[in-house]
Write a protein that binds this DNA or RNA. Structure first.
Lengths: 133, 133, 133, 133
DNA sequence: GTGGTCTAGACCACG
DNA sequence: GTGGTCTAGACCACT
């Protein structure tokens, strides 16, 4: 089963960023577990319809972040030594639930996705401001 | 009173995007109301410590979006004819409340800001997928 | 004055690694100081006779390492916030002196550069082994 | 007694290079003497936890370099006819001593292993430049 | 004119 | 067959 990755070309966000973020999310969700073998660079490139250089960069970046292990001639694996545990399914479910409710509310108020995202970021930073003072 | 704008240079998101989004949010929140006079391009540029070209672009973009009106020799105003009403303070309060709770939850689970943002975007698009089917 | 960079193509070590290492060394030596403006991506590429993508990668890697600050449309600078001071000229001189003596000795014994390098790495790791136990 | 070989996977340097360099060093140090029998390809592969193809390549390379002799059905031996004498224990001791002192100094200055290696290489080449002029 | 992304394709290094 | 490097060149985003 191929990974559930979807990219949007020409939405402004670089493809490699999109893929990286989605892979991070999959690891966070426990869909990708430590030791798992990822698709070949070329495979994923074909699957997503992008150049293999782009996937190359994705894998490399995630390796530098300590999330993947690249073995030349062998393949690419989810790092065994991720210092962070994936979220427990129950917690994840609760989180997604809240997110969905929030989205529903925002949409009922006529907000766009980016507006909600901006609001979220603003509030997040506000919190961290307080925390760091 | 200066506008409550905060930008982060070198966080990857273009400055002009940050300013645009935040101005949109302020209008949405009713902090900026139709007819309000905005700071001069130069004033705002100095205040934020950015190139005035950048603010120029912000104002231009928002004018094209119909949100601002530029009157040469007079100043820049929030458009009187915004087709969309700002959110009612009560609704906004409820929304921000939910956002804050969500952030709290996400932080307690060890998520980063960008991860939560990514999750939000994923779920938002998932919804729209359903809606469009 | 151009930066004193020299690369050897086809010596096995990737060009981007060579350039990165040499730039790091220049910062260490204080030849490149915080705030200094580096050559344009394209300039350096031409100067070294490589593709600009390669230099692009060098700058990007060093940015991720916190050593450079890239400003689109402006240029590339040595980071002001390097947490590490360049070596004092006096110390550097002493170090280079020792290095030169060591090289002389190694050469008199008929060692090759890579053999000395290997010996150095072996001993270095031996030390860290002890230290970490 | 097994050979004192240590490899680090995923440190960027190919495994076969690490093994080759360390074997060369052992011969240089006189740990491996002409006529000595080396471990079987499979043995060494198992011991180091690498693919036997890798060890195969190591032995092949070192044979081509004239350092090893492969006798089918018998085993692999250190060549009797190495044109270069191992370093005398006394000289080696002196060299290692200097290396250790250098490492100590470099570490006290906060250098990393690779930085010192880079410095060493730079100086080495500088010398050869002079010599060749 | 800055840096940034992406492509198509060649060639290399490793197993 | 893996991943890795590099090129030439196009096009984009930002100042």
């Amino acid at each position: 089963m191929p990974l559930p990755l979807q990219i949007q070309k020409d939405n402004g966000i670089p493809v490699y960023v999109q893929v990286e973020q989605q892979l991070r999310l999959l690891m966070l969700q426990g869909v990708l577990l430590p030791g798992d073998l990822l698709p070949t660079v070329r495979e994923l490139a074909v699957e997503l319809g992008v150049n293999s250089n782009t996937i190359n960069r994705v894998y490399r970046d995630l390796q530098q972040a300590g999330l993947l292990v690249l073995q030349r001639g062998v393949g690419t694996f989810v790092s065994e030594a991720i210092d962070r545990q994936p979220i427990r399914p129950k917690d994840l479910k609760g989180l997604v639930n809240k997110v969905d409710h929030l989205i529903e509310l925002a949409q009922s108020l006529g907000l766009t996705s980016s507006e909600l995202g901006q609001l979220l970021e603003t509030r997040w930073n506000k919190d961290s401001d307080h925390a760091s003072r």
